[in-house]
Write a protein that binds this DNA or RNA. Structure first.
Lengths: 155, 155
DNA sequence: TCATGTGAGTAAAGCAGCTTTACTCATTCG
DNA sequence: CGAATGAGTAAAGCTGCTTTACTCACATGA
């Protein structure tokens, strides 16, 4: 039998939580170091959700899995700080289109780079391909094959 | 090349978060179904931290990674609902020893069973051994070999 | 033409679960 | 025996959300 260290008796759920906590923590720390200490993970998720042609606040709410009021608050915050703009919606109505500014696109670029650097470093200690494969299987087993649910704060 | 479905382009960090969210959500749902809808994950963690000979509120705070006031509030809550008792500490001082009641030990037993049932079911879709191994490696790479940090709400 | 509905946005209060600040009190040590 | 130590507690503050309730632009159709 292969002995894998002191984590044999640790619950899978606990290990999943720790893994996520540590990887996300390291990611956030590195982003803070390069000048993004003012952005939380949810802001990066919002940028991802808006990166194509933007979206209305209500669409953003659906993609983030929060109420439209919460999405509106996030947009207020990001707008004050210059990461998004509210434009009149091309299809009129009361709608407004929330679009990214160059500052947000720059953040997306940097965050993507940091994420891939981190993954490359982890590949020195773990089989990241296998990890990714098994995680995908677990996600599909619990959620089904139809797309991915929004990632919400865990617990 | 092996094609593993539509998750190829998904960030590892995102996948980790989704995996944790879905597994913890399923665990919590099943516990609620068997009568524990009133207990959050942090309560289960507290039970784990107290299950030997109990601990003081300050020790509990360290093990949970929160302030001693937060630990005190959690203990207040659990005490009102009959899951823990505050006893005078055998070594005196101002200390009090927080110990589990049989109700809490019963919860620990049921939660452990649910966790292992869930893991067994996941083993039908994924290689849980590999997942556990790679997660352990990631955790050690980011935290070191000295024990495991407290699991805190993510993000 | 205009009432009535529909859907997006917004305003404000409420709430959970923490932290921060500030204290009380029993014990110990110089 | 007076001050330091360390556990516990009280109360306010804060963040990031939800809930409740509203406004307003446009669409529909009698």
């Amino acid at each position: 039998m292969t002995w894998n260290g002191p984590d044999e008796g640790v619950e899978l759920t606990f290990l999943l939580g720790l893994g996520f906590q540590l990887v996300l923590g390291e990611f956030t720390r590195r982003l803070a170091e390069v000048g993004y200490a003012d952005l939380r993970p949810v802001h990066g998720m919002a940028f991802q959700a808006l990166k194509g042609d933007g979206a209305t606040a209500t669409e953003l709410a659906e993609r983030l899995g929060v109420t439209k009021q919460a999405a509106g608050q996030i947009v207020d915050d990001l707008e004050r700080r210059g990461y998004v703009r509210r434009e009149p919606h091309p299809e009129g109505g009361r709608r407004k289109l929330v679009v990214l500014t160059p500052a947000a696109r720059q953040h997306l670029f940097v965050a993507g780079r940091v994420l891939h650097e981190l993954e490359a470093e982890l590949a020195g200690s773990a089989d990241v391909g296998a990890l990714r494969r098994e995680l995908s299987r677990v996600v599909r087993a619990l959620h089904g094959a139809d797309g991915l649910p929004p990632l919400r704060p865990v617990w």
